[in-house]
């Protein structure tokens, strides 16, 4: 039995090697095709977007629809995870035993509080600079979420209450995105087509909502994983 198991593993390893070989061969061949990419098109169209950073322009304008649906994915993960880790939809994230005891104190409470202000400052800077330099809503949201995770680890149960109260933040990005998309369509006639005169303001609104939802959902998902682990009765 043991021996057969080993030979099976050998075959699987061989298959994996072949797979890696095939993938690398395809990758090298594809890379040598030296396709032009889309950067010229992006650079040429950048002037019409009121955004100076090409990555942000792709995320929020050229392919803003991807980002909209991505907010749907985040919302879905949060909906299911928060329901499974808590007793009901009303109490989205329940302060559980595990969150209070073994995790509590794993990050020094003092350190978590010290980190909070600079992390929030970094997040705000990333959000602000996102329109013309690397950075933006997703990065800012991730940094806020990191601050929230440190806070949760440092303070246990208190944070769960905050997490529960802010549940409307989770669908905020999807909601604002949809609303903005329809609102600009009233002016320009096309869904998600930002009119020149308000493009910056509309995008800032979407960025702020996206950062808030990403921050909230990532922090809540962390709490959900902790709670699910602590739910064994």
């Amino acid at each position: 039995m043991k021996r057969r198991h080993h030979s099976l593993e050998g075959w699987l390893a061989l298959l994996a090697g072949l797979l890696a070989l095939g993938l690398v061969a395809a990758g090298v061949l594809a890379y040598q095709a030296d396709s032009p990419g889309l950067q010229d098109l992006v650079v040429r169209s950048l002037a019409q977007t009121r955004v100076d950073n090409p990555v942000t322009a792709v995320l929020l304008d050229f392919r803003g629809y991807d980002t909209l649906l991505e907010m749907g994915v985040l919302l879905l993960a949060w909906l299911t995870a928060s329901t499974l880790s808590g007793p009901s939809h009303e109490r989205l994230v329940r302060p559980s035993a595990r969150l209070e005891s073994p995790v509590d104190g794993s990050v020094d409470r003092m350190l978590a509080r010290l980190l909070l202000a600079p992390l929030l400052l970094v997040a705000a800077y990333l959000l602000w600079r996102g329109t013309d330099a690397p950075g933006g809503a997703l990065q800012a949201g991730a940094v806020v979420a990191a601050a929230a995770v440190a806070w949760q680890l440092g303070s246990g149960a208190e944070s769960s209450v905050t997490v529960r109260r802010g549940y409307w933040l989770a669908p905020a990005a999807l909601g604002v995105f949809l609303l903005a998309g329809v609102a600009v369509a009233v002016v320009t006639g096309t869904f998600l087509n930002h009119p020149q005169f308000a493009a910056r303001e509309v995008m800032m609104a979407i960025e702020v909502a996206t950062a808030a939802s990403v921050a909230y959902i990532l922090a809540a998902l962390f709490a959900c994983v902790l709670n699910a682990g602590g739910n064994g009765k």
Binding site: G37, L38, Q39, V42, P54, V55, A57, V58, L59, F62, R63, D66, T67, E70, V73, L74, L76, A77, W78, T80, A81, G136, L138, V214, I217, L218, L221, F222, C224, V225
Partner: peptide
């Protein structure tokens, strides 16, 4: 080329959500 970079940012968020779930 900024397009693949934007795709990665989108993909990362999707991956994190699915992993947490």
């Amino acid at each position: 080329d900024p397009v693949p970079h934007a795709l990665v940012l989108t993909g990362l968020v999707v991956a994190v959500s699915a992993t947490a779930l």
